[in-house]
Design a protein around this nucleic acid. Structure first.
Lengths: 346, 346
DNA sequence: GTTAGCACTCTCGCGCACTGAGTGCCAAAC
DNA sequence: GTTTGGCACTCAGTGCGCGAGAGTGCTAAC
């Protein structure tokens, strides 16, 4: 959070008006517009003076000498930090969200895909969702299943109804009896363990046990280590085509930039996750700081399952976004997703 | 395949030249260009006459009275049906493709995602891939796994290394012994059965059996019927941002149309699949016929696993595509994907 | 049948003037 | 001291005319 200049009440009021007006119209706003649209008891000339001050402070800027003003990055930041009031959702809006997410789905990824789609629809921007990371998921079952003579499939079912699988070619053949023993062993010790800790858990046992048990643990480890590590969830992106409707992306250069960013999943996931470090509920990110986010805005909120943060959802769009409404939507959706997943995981 | 007008050798040659030139330059081509770029032993004036004839036949068109000609839909179709020669890939190009697909992956969906990505990269258009449909996949294992007191997960591992799963809330509780019995029953009868036929297979048994066996079959059916039917594969789309580089999509209206189409997975999958009905190897589709494909082109080829068609891969782009090269690339990739998946499934 | 020549057409880019929105500043009013 | 009306100024956007360039169609000659 950066330091902001002190503003008088009037300056705040006018900055607020300019940002609001620009957010909905996408057009540079002049002094007359501010007065008319917000029923101010001042003349345009006065407003002009204030706007000139705001420009000097770096909160507004002009595209060319004589056209209305547009918020700068700092202007948006000030708006977000001090002026914006998170809008209450109407009953109808909440209903809408609940209905979209009410479809019976029994795995977390499906729920999150729908949530992401929903966010894209209501925001007209891109909807993002991070699926629960392995650190947040716990194993319900770990099973080895014979697929070929020396080929096994390991299936890990987590508390979100998802199945992770790996194929394993075992060095020495494994009898049915041993397989059964191994399955019993794993489920006894791994039920409820975080998915990213499975092999660690077995290693712990390894030190304690002897003989028979030790041999089993070693065998289990051999397969468990094949499970690809996924410390982060996967990123779901929906509704990218919505972005092309936005006026800022009529310019091809900008459009290409966003679409390139949208294909760099790793980077994007990093940005989304970084929003959660702030603590608190939802967060808004603007282009200034993060290199790749130039000219863009991101509204994100974590969702919690059983009281623990499990992942993030959010909306990515141009810097000019309807933040007051979208933070409300994203927060509400995050809460709902959390509840749905909690029910599903219980 | 529609009826084409008869063309003289010279007309064919000139049409060929115009299409070729337009495909690489994206600019209307004039008579001088044809003569110069293709070393013709004719004067521009003669070429002009021929081009006028071709225009009368509806194979070429002018954007305005006096600028070069551009192929029409019919012109492309003629080119594809009669003039185009599928280009041989160079050793280097084949190497490139093989390297991209050589990464160790043990499930079909991963391989296809990479293939799709690869197609996008080399074509500079969008890469499409259909994952193997349930009709083409056979079950290697069908296992029920206890997740909660009355909650089971059914896991179906298919010959492509993929795992399908459903959660099932069973009506009456099921003991461990029964579960084990059930698993044995299912794997005995369902190993090697097409994934879309699992419940049918069990139903067949149901008629033959009595008592104990019958009860098991009924129980199995209860769960198997929960498995969502997926008669078509899923569609993987990669590299959509590449499309924005193409000159035809500098026009926002067209760009939006493609991106909207790309989000309608069902429709797109239908288009891709319809290319396979033609039989043969690869197929090229143009906008004219299919409503949604207006102004676009699609090069597609089926991949086969164990000699049976398992799905389609392809490239979607503007109508102006480098067909002679791309059909070769798509075919070669399809063959390679087929071989990889055959090895993986064996 | 082919070609050279020529008039014609149309796009594209440029400069120009004009309009309108909006500003900055100053002097008068409150 | 703050606010306001007035006025000159700036600049994007638009419409127009003009010339250059690319390419054509047609005709007459080979």
């Amino acid at each position: 959070m950066q330091k902001h200049p002190e503003l008088t009440d009037r300056e705040r009021e006018i900055l607020h008006a300019v940002v609001n007006s620009y957010i909905i119209s996408a057009e540079a706003v002049g002094s007359r517009t501010v007065v008319k649209r917000f029923g101010m008891e001042l003349s345009p000339a006065t407003v002009r003076n204030v706007m000139a001050d705001l420009e000097e402070m770096g909160l507004l800027e002009q595209l060319h000498t004589s056209s209305g003003r547009v918020p700068t990055g700092a202007g948006y930041q000030y708006y977000i930090d001090h002026l914006m009031r998170v809008q209450e959702l109407t009953l109808r809006e909440r209903r809408r969200i609940e209905e979209e997410l009410s479809e019976r789905l029994d795995d977390a990824d499906g729920v999150l895909r729908r949530a992401s789609h929903l966010l894209a629809l209501v925001s007209h921007h891109a909807g993002l969702a991070e699926t629960p990371a392995d650190t947040a998921a716990v194993a319900m079952r770990v099973d080895l299943v014979r697929v070929g003579p020396a080929k096994l499939a390991m299936l890990v079912v987590d508390n979100f109804g998802r199945v992770r699988s790996v194929m394993a070619q075992v060095a020495s053949p494994m009898g049915d009896a041993e397989l059964e023993q191994l399955n019993r062993f794993m489920n006894e010790h791994l039920h409820g363990a975080p998915v990213d800790q499975l092999s660690v858990r077995v290693e712990e046992r390894l030190r304690l046990y002897l003989d028979e048990q030790r041999r089993l643990a070693q065998r289990a480890l051999e397969v468990l280590e094949l499970l690809p590590r996924r410390p982060q969830g996967m990123l779901i992106v929906e509704g990218t085509s919505q972005l092309l409707e936005q006026p800022e992306f009529q310019d091809m250069r900008q459009a290409r930039d966003v679409f390139n960013l949208l294909e760099e999943r790793e980077e994007l996931l990093g940005l989304l996750r970084s929003a959660s470090d702030e603590g608190g509920r939802s967060a808004v990110f603007l282009g200034g700081g993060a290199r790749k986010l130039e000219g863009l805005g991101l509204v994100a909120a974590p969702y919690e399952v059983d009281g623990r943060k499990a992942g993030m959802i959010g909306v990515l769009g141009p810097r000019r976004m309807h933040y007051s409404k979208l933070t409300a939507v994203v927060e509400y959706t995050a809460g709902l997703v959390g509840r749905i997943l909690t029910r599903l995981s219980g």
